[in-house]
Structure formats: structure tokens, C-alpha cells
Design a protein around this nucleic acid. Structure first.
Length: 105
DNA sequence: ACGGTGACGCTCA
DNA sequence: TTGAGCGCCACCG
């Protein structure tokens, strides 16, 4: 399994997200210095070889929706709820849970 | 080396 | 507010 430098950076940042908090793909991309690479970030997380260590379920879309997850979005939502993040109709109920940057809309 | 793909994001209708 | 379309980037075949 070849882990590219790009992915390393993604995993590293993702690992910093505290329990009970979430970050967006966009925020990660920005932190990487590549605001337009949000899509690539998603790809990296989908590939996530460091499963439990890297809490990829704590990464959601910039519009507040949950996004995808390798095992079903439902699973992702369940995990977040367990950590204390309220989900409302497929989206986080409050921006208070956001870690790092802020979302819009 | 080239083109297609996807856990995204933003704009327009 | 919801849905459809186009643009972006890194990775795989």
C-alpha cells in the first residue's frame, strides 16, 4: 500500500480532530494549502489505511451534510452521535461542532 | 503518458 | 430550499 505524501498530510490533520467535533473536507484541503483539493481529500480518506487512528467519520461536507463513508453514511452518523455530535436530517444540527474553520450557507 | 473516477464545492435554474 | 451542471485535484487502470 503506497501512501502518498498528500495522503499522509490528510491523515495527520484528520487525526487532530477532537472527539465530539467535526471538520470539513474543504477545511482539510485549505489546511493543506490546496483549497481546491477537497475532492482529492475525500479520496484519501476513502482510502484510509489507518482506520481507527484516523477518525475519518469526523470529516463532513462543507454544506453541513454528512457526506460519504466506506460502510454507509448511516454508520458515520451513528458514530458521530455516539461522540456527542447531533445530526439532524442528514446534517449536523449546529456549527458549534465544527473544528478548524467555519462553514457557510 | 492519457483518460476516467470519486467520501467535494460552488453557481445557476 | 432542492436539484442539476461544471470545475478541481490526486489516484488508478
Amino acid at each position: 500500500m503506497t501512501v502518498t505524501n498528500f495522503q499522509k498530510r490528510v491523515y495527520r490533520l484528520t487525526a487532530l480532530i477532537p472527539r465530539g467535533r467535526v471538520a470539513t473536507y474543504l477545511a482539510l484541503a485549505k489546511a493543506l494549502g490546496q483549497p481546491g483539493a477537497s475532492r482529492a481529500v475525500g479520496n484519501a480518506l476513502h482510502n484510509n489505511p489507518y482506520a481507527p487512528q484516523v477518525p475519518c467519520h469526523r470529516v463532513i461536507r462543507s454544506d453541513g451534510t454528512i457526506g460519504g463513508f466506506a460502510g454507509g453514511a448511516a454508520k458515520k452518523i451513528a458514530l458521530l452521535k455516539k461522540e456527542g455530535v447531533s445530526i439532524k436530517t442528514g446534517r449536523i444540527s449546529s456549527t458549534e461542532y465544527l473544528y478548524g474553520f467555519k462553514i457557510k450557507r
